[in-house]
Each structure stands twice: as structure tokens, then as C-alpha cells.
Design a protein around this nucleic acid. Structure first.
Lengths: 154, 154
DNA sequence: TGACACTTTATGGGCGTCAATGGAAAGTCT
DNA sequence: AGACTTTCCATTGACGCCCATAAAGTGTCA
């Protein structure tokens, strides 16, 4: 089980600690770093989260010499420079740095939203609004998706 | 054999538990997650269900750590975030989250409706109405279809 | 073929464990 | 020492796990 699914709303205490949903934690076991890697999303007011394995793979990509290497360089700066390693405490919580809390405008609670291979952390109310919009778009594009889904596996 | 066929109506107890029909369970054996993945349908008042394999395939197509790949779907976001992993208990039941019960307006009973590679969970009465309507529509369209076929002869 | 034993499902309920949360204690860094 | 951070216990409420029962299906054998 290596997928982040569903949405969980947990509390942020006055120390900035949040419980990472248990199912997310189990999706991260066996990694070289026991915790999550988090960075402010470049596109939405949320925190992007994943295991460190993702970044290890990403690092390999930046080492390559290719036509996009310059873009990769900017990319690496934007990604690695702004990312945080957040270790689990013994109860499976992480502490969110001030920079991330500010970026996502987090208050008393935080919504962990599964996105498959990664997840995001949202202010719950902001996510509800965003989800409504995203769902509406998905509904419109539904035809294309369903076709893809029903493709016979080769 | 991995198809969901036929319709079964089972009870929802006061804990929100429902037995997944045995034939549906056997269609799910051997998956990496022992249970079903469920999400509210985008189009009808029902719960969409499937095995996790479907979502694993979906995740492969959406790698969204790279912000330059603008191509990621709203859809994947809407799908992963709104989905729920519902593990089987030792008797083959799942517990339906409040959000799904509300979406499908489930009461004391739930109808599991096979759809081939997936299935749906309906409030039984709502499904009967929907089915009547669907077969009626199919009948009308079949009529039109047959007419079209006959046209070249005339 | 009909009766009986056995297996599989569906359903209900009780109870122990763990996840989520809060707070205290211990350790660090000026 | 004071402020802040990390580690360690304490509580509670939900959920997973187990057992018990009933209904339904399957098979066997006289």
C-alpha cells in the first residue's frame, strides 16, 4: 500500500504539532527517513508532502546533463531550497514550520489530502472550496476520463 | 475472474458496517490492499467502489511533484482526495464513512450493484427508480437505433 | 430422494488496542 | 536562567478483532 488516499482533518496544537494520518504513515514505512518531506506548493495555498524517496529520485534527475538542465537547476532551487524534512515524533506527529503554516494559512486544523503518490496539507475550509471547483471541472471532463478508465488493459 | 456482477442488498448496522457480497470479495482477492476503495459518484447519488488496483494504475499517470508538467488532472485530485480506503474486517464487512452514507442517502440497507470492473452502492429504493429510468432510456434509444439501421433499406 | 451433517454468509454485540490529542518533563541554545 | 524544542506519559474515543448466532447453500449417504 503505497498510495495516499482520502482526506483527514487533524488538529494543530499550540506547538505546531499535527498527527499525520495513520494510513499515510504506513505508506511511508521502510523509507530511509522516518518522516515527511514538505514544501510550499508552487501553485496552490497548500503544503506538498511526500516521502523522501521521491526527492532522492528527483535528485538523480537533476544530475543529468540534458537540454532542460537549466530549467532543472531552477527547479532544484525552488524545490530543494524550500523543502523541509519533518521527522515523526514517537506518536507519529510532525511539527509544521512557520513558513509552511503561513503559506497554507493554517489555523487550528489541517486537512491531509491524498493525491496518489503525494499528499497536500490544506486549511480545511480553503480545501473545501478548491475541491468543489476541481470536482466541477472533473465532472465536465468526465467523458474523457471514463473512456480512459475503461480501456482494456493490454 | 474479476468481474462484479448482479445486485445484492445487505443491511447497514448501527456501526455503519455492511457485508460486501461474497462474490464481490472473491473478485478482490490478491490485491495489495484487502478491502475496497470507495468514493462518491460524480454523477449519481451512489458510491463508486473498486479494488485499489484501479487507483494504482491511475497514480502512475499522474506524477505531480514536477510543477512543470501542468498536465495533471483536476480529476485525479478530485478522485484521490474524495476516495476512502475501506478495509475488510474478519467477516468481510466494511464500515461506510459518514460522508459516503450522506452522499448516497443510505439508510438501513445498501444495494451493491455490479458494473463489471467496478460496482456501486445505492440506497435500494433510489436504485430501483434509477434502473427503471435507465432501462426506459435504453428502450427508447434502441428504438432509434434500430430505425437508423433500417433506413438504408427504405 | 429425503434427512442429516457441514460449510459458507450475513448479522449482531462485546471488548481490547491503537490513533489522536493534550500536557508534563527533560534537554538545548543562547 | 529564560525561551524554545524535543521526548515522554496520560486520556478518551473510535475502530479492529473476536466470538456467537442464524440463515442459506452444499454435499453425502442410506
Amino acid at each position: 500500500m503505497a498510495l495516499f488516499l482520502s482526506t483527514f482533518v487533524n488538529k494543530v496544537d499550540k506547538k505546531g504539532r499535527v498527527s499525520v494520518p495513520a494510513s499515510f504513515r504506513t505508506a511511508l514505512v521502510g523509507q530511509t527517513f522516518s518522516g515527511v518531506v514538505a514544501l510550499p506548493s508552487l501553485t496552490v495555498p497548500a503544503v506538498e508532502g511526500s516521502g523522501i524517496d521521491r526527492f532522492e529520485r528527483l535528485a538523480e534527475g537533476t544530475d543529468q546533463l540534458n537540454p532542460f538542465s537549466e530549467a532543472h537547476d531552477d527547479f532544484a532551487k525552488a524545490i530543494f531550497g524550500r523543502s523541509h524534512q519533518l521527522p515523526f515524533d514517537s506518536e507519529g506527529r510532525i511539527v509544521l514550520p512557520e513558513a509552511l503554516i503561513a503559506h497554507a494559512k493554517l489555523g487550528e486544523t489541517a486537512a491531509f489530502v491524498g493525491q496518489g503518490r503525494t499528499f497536500q496539507i490544506w486549511e480545511p475550509e480553503a480545501y473545501r472550496a478548491y475541491e468543489r471547483e476541481a470536482t466541477e471541472r472533473a465532472r465536465r471532463e468526465r467523458g474523457a476520463f471514463l473512456q480512459r478508465r475503461e480501456e482494456p488493459r493490454s
